[in-house]
């Protein structure tokens, strides 16, 4: 197990390096740079070159990247081109909202996806068709469009939830919760059906295995056979799907945070891309990549927790 985690962490190093270098390399192609934006159009060409040299921008990309990596390792991601604030300060202020959103998606997917999946594995028919229809709807409508429909129906028309904006938990837990419902549901809608389908398929597979018959023969209740034994054995592929969903939810967050005006990493990254705030975008990219790595690690840990064969080796 320890070796598995070590392996996964080692494998994530190239990912982090590739993503950050890719953005770094892209940025070196950009017309404007930090020196230009710091001078805000003023100054002479000589002063500009001096500032470039001072900032290390005249060095080869690889050298610059190395310096960035060195600083990043000490927790210094530079300053925003636009506001001049430290990138880490900006990002740390935003990461909580995005993580809340993602955890919400995870909870909803687990609860609704597992319930629907098990129900359709056992009962088939109606629940299965409902999942198929929902899955189709979730697939064909973009998440940001679904988010807008949710706003039109549940916020504007029915008035159950606030349309946009974010209330910090400390200010008002109730409003915080209500404000997160629609964003979470918009991201989760399609993912729920993915979890449900995977749960259905792997439950049907496990329910046909010999040990289920043996457990039934030993007199255990059907509830315990299905919810404890079959579900536990069916869980591995579901966890894999959940991992993929959580990685995809990063993308969903970018759109949904924009729709609901949530102060998360996604809306910050969109804004940075819009303003070509390279340093900020670079930081956001690093954060997103770290979240991806963390998700993959969690998936591996749950493999170990769920499957004794992985744990004991």
């Amino acid at each position: 197990m320890v070796r598995l985690i070590a392996h996964r962490l080692a494998m994530s190093v190239p990912l982090i390096v590739v993503v950050t270098f890719l953005t770094f390399f892209l940025n070196s192609l950009a017309p404007g740079d930090l020196a230009r934006s710091l001078m805000q159009g003023g100054g002479t060409e000589e002063q500009y070159q001096q500032l470039r040299a001072q900032l290390g921008l005249d060095q080869p990309v690889l050298v610059q990247y190395w310096h960035w990596l060195e600083r990043a390792a000490t927790g210094d991601l530079g300053v925003s081109f636009f506001t001049g604030e430290r990138v880490t300060t900006l990002l740390n202020g935003r990461v909580g909202v995005t993580l809340t959103l993602m955890i919400g998606v995870l909870i909803v997917c687990l609860a609704a996806g597992l319930t629907l999946g098990i129900a359709s594995a056992l009962r088939g028919g109606f629940v299965g068709r409902a999942i198929d229809v929902m899955s189709m709807l979730g697939l064909i409508f973009p998440s940001f469009w679904i988010a807008l429909v949710f706003i039109a129906v549940f916020a504007v028309w029915l008035g159950w939830f606030p349309a946009t904006g974010y209330t910090p938990f400390r200010d008002d837990p109730r409003l915080w919760f209500l404000g997160m419902v629609l964003p979470v549901m918009s991201v989760a809608l399609h993912s729920i059906t993915n979890v449900a389908k995977q749960t259905r398929d792997s439950m049907i597979d496990v329910m046909g295995r010999d040990f289920i018959r043996a457990l039934r023969a030993s007199g255990l209740s059907e509830t315990s056979v299905v919810l404890k034994h079959a579900l536990r054995n069916a869980a591995l592929p579901v966890v894999t799907v959940l991992g993929a969903i959580m990685v995809a939810a990063i993308g969903g967050a970018v759109f949904v945070e924009r729709v609901f005006v949530l102060p998360g990493l996604g809306s910050l990254a969109t804004q940075a891309a819009d303003q070509s705030d390279i340093a900020l975008l670079q930081g956001a990219t690093l954060y997103f990549t770290l979240i991806t790595v963390a998700i993959n690690l969690l998936v591996d840990l749950s493999y170990g927790w769920l499957n004794p064969k992985v744990r004991i080796q």
Binding site: L15, V18, V19, L22, T23, L26, N27, L29, A30, V247, I250, G251, V254, A269, T270, A272, A273, D274, S276, D277, I278, L281, Q282, A284, T285, F288, T289, T292
Partner: peptide, 13 residues
């Protein structure tokens, strides 16, 4: 690689 994140970086440039 997270698709959207890479795209944001490309579009920033």
């Amino acid at each position: 690689l997270p698709t959207i994140v890479v795209l944001l970086a490309v579009l920033a440039v």
